[in-house]
Nucleic acid binder design. Structure first.
Lengths: 256, 256
DNA sequence: TTTGTCGGATTGTCGGACAATCTAACCGCC
DNA sequence: GGCGGTTAGATTGTCCGACAATCCGACAAA
């Protein structure tokens, strides 16, 4: 990228720099988990046992364990013993959201991406939603309609609605791709609900049209309402004084 | 779960558990970074300084620092001193990819998501690509055409091509959402290139059509070729003996 | 069956230590 | 004066040993 390799002069040495022991410990355990030798739900043994296996000091083991713990591959139960675990996706979602905030992406980028991801999710939901999932969506809408005045609650139920749509899509790749931008969009939803009087009503109506379209397996109608719904959000955002071309603000995100 | 709460006796207490000191250290520093009190590029001070500020032992500080280091908010320079840093996105991308593998998503989920994300990226690239970015894309295609026989190199240049498209989209949210699935799709590209003789040629042709469409700002043509390109990949995958409805295999991913 | 008590095991935290390594200042030389 | 080599100091990576807090399991008591 930076310079054109004219004659490829040096064989570009492979960056020898023996990584410190604590990192090698983490990588070794991680390799075993990724390769399947260690499966989720199995105990990882005590720190003392790891000390013996790796032949390093307990402090070193502990520093290594921290890395695995932080990436979600290892969990401590109530007694703080170590267990192998499938990484929960929530942590990744907040990490990605946090990175987007720190990199100061604009609301427009967020909006464009959220729209594309929601349309894709809707498509998948139209195709794959089960009757039970559709029922859950309708229960959510009824609950929302019953508390139209409570902005906090409506925002919470809206987030839940989109999570249910994600489930109905039966596509975890799409879900994981969609959730970070969704989280950021949602974090301004309550603000908009407070500032724009008719927002909650329009939200419930859009949700109803969504679910109707999903039940009828009507892709185009579902897409149309997804578009309108997000456009509503954008207009509400602008009416609340937001500028689409400015970086999104630093929002209080639970640290993860 | 174990017993039915007949009369809901206790008001379900919120799980009090003072987090250990090392985690509180990490969270305190993280809060300062997220809130902007600590900015990227600033030094974080030596371990000894942190020991003094937090009033805890160096081992505790070190365990806390590991967490920040692992989430990419803190970096060590050549002399291993600590600096605040914007988290690089590569780490997040590999984390998400790894999680998808561990959760055993199917190739079909991957394919559907990758298609939707690529189409959205293409749309944005058609709208926002600069002449310089289009030139870079064409140089990449020429380089690929010149080495059609070398599967490894073609796979690498293909990955680079898609990264360039991502850049041309000028949408970092979309890019970060797209890259994990792209990485997983790409990891099987070399396999396909080896097994399907005409794959490399079709790849170059599709890339050329892409870039042509982008230069003409012809969204529909770009979408068409993006679709065809990915369908090619899917057919190649099936012809190489893959089953779309099986979980993607555990692939060697650089640990991050 | 439920509750109180006890011993053993394990973790979280501490204090101190030392070798390796990097930085920065210093020194001699052209 | 600028440059390369040398040396002292600072900092990290790792180790060792220690102890209180907590958790688990077993056992005794009610």
């Amino acid at each position: 990228m930076t310079t054109q390799a004219v004659s490829k002069p040096a064989p570009t040495f492979p960056r020898l720099a023996a990584s410190p022991a604590y990192r090698r410990v983490a990588e070794a355990v991680e390799r075993d988990i990724l390769s399947g030798r260690l499966k989720a739900g199995e105990p990882l043994g005590t720190e003392a046992a790891l000390v013996e296996q790796f032949g390093v000091n307990r402090s070193t083991i502990r520093e290594g364990i921290r890395l695995l713990e932080h990436s979600g591959l290892v969990r401590r139960d109530s007694s703080r013993r170590l267990w192998v675990q499938l990484p929960r996706t929530e942590r990744l979602v907040t990490s990605v959201s946090r990175a987007l905030v720190l990199h100061e992406v604009t609301f427009r980028e967020l909006y464009d991406a959220a729209l594309a991801l929601q349309l894709a999710t809707i498509d998948a939901a139209v195709e794959h939603a089960t009757p039970g999932e559709i029922d859950a969506l309708e229960r959510n809408i009824d609950a929302t309609a019953a508390r139209l005045g409570d902005a906090t609650e409506v925002a919470r139920l809206d987030a839940e609605f989109h999570a249910l749509i994600g489930l109905a899509s039966h596509n975890r790749v799409l879900q994981l791709a969609r959730e970070p931008s969704e989280l950021l969009v949602m974090s301004s939803a309550e603000l908009i609900l407070r500032n724009v009087a008719e927002a909650a009503g329009r939200l419930v109506h859009a949700h109803r049209m969504y679910v109707d379209a999903i039940r009828r397996r009507d892709r185009d109608a579902a897409r149309l309402w997804a578009r309108r719904h997000l456009e509503d959000w954008r207009r509400g955002f602008e009416r609340a004084g937001g500028d689409l071309d400015r970086p999104i603000d630093r929002i209080i995100l639970e640290s993860g």
